[in-house]
Simulated assay, not measured.
Amino acid sequence: MTLVKFNPEKRNNALMPFGDVFESIFNDTFFNDRVMTRVPAANISESEDHFHVEMAAPGLKKEDFKLNLERNVLQVSVEQAAEQNDAQRNYSKREYSYTSWVRSFTLPESADAEQIEATYADGILKIDIAKREEAKAVRRQIEIK
């Protein structure tokens, strides 16, 4: 997955040209449970001097996460053994289960791979990736003569 800008105005999807017609069908839990992978959702944003990745991963501890950077790809992973209580339960519906997963993000050229910080609090993993100095937006007031 790459860090690209999100355009909410552009909702054109080649796989779903009729959009809303099939939306209720594919948003049904029958399809979601089978089609959607069970990985935490991620929000990716950008500020003047950083890229920000936030992942919703409730019920974990910061020790559960592993962050690796290799060849400009940031990989976030969690590997947990299933609890014995889960094996004894008979779920009628299970919408969250983050026992083991991996998410990968390709960093843009403007990212500074040496300055990546991560924190985990209140079920949200926050990763801040600094921009290289030359990639930061230059702003200045231009005098009119």
Rank of each mutant, 00 (worst) to 15 (best):
F26T: 08
I129F: 01
T29W: 15
T2D: 14
V73Q: 15
S92I: 11
V138A: 11
V35D: 07
K131P: 00
E117Q: 02
A118E: 02
T106G: 14
N7K: 07
E79G: 14
E95W: 15
D20G: 10
Y98E: 02
T2E: 14
S47V: 09
E63G: 03
R34H: 08
N32K: 13
R38T: 13
Q80P: 05
K126R: 12
L125F: 00
E134V: 05
E134Y: 07
A135Q: 06
D64Y: 03
D33W: 14
W101E: 01
F22I: 09
T37V: 11
R94V: 07
P40D: 00
Y96H: 11
S100G: 12
E63T: 05
A56H: 05
Y96A: 11
K136P: 03
P17Y: 09
L74K: 00
I44M: 14
F22K: 12
R11Y: 05
E83G: 09
K62T: 08
E54F: 08
P108H: 04
I25G: 04
H50T: 15
V35C: 08
A130D: 07
T106M: 08
R89N: 13
T106D: 06
D122E: 12
F31C: 06
S104E: 14
V35I: 15
S110D: 09
F22H: 10
L15P: 02
A111H: 01
D20S: 13
V73I: 13
Q75M: 12
A121R: 14
V73G: 05
R11S: 07
V102W: 06
N68V: 06
V76S: 00
E63H: 02
I116W: 01
S24Q: 15
M1G: 07
K145A: 10
L69V: 09
M55V: 05
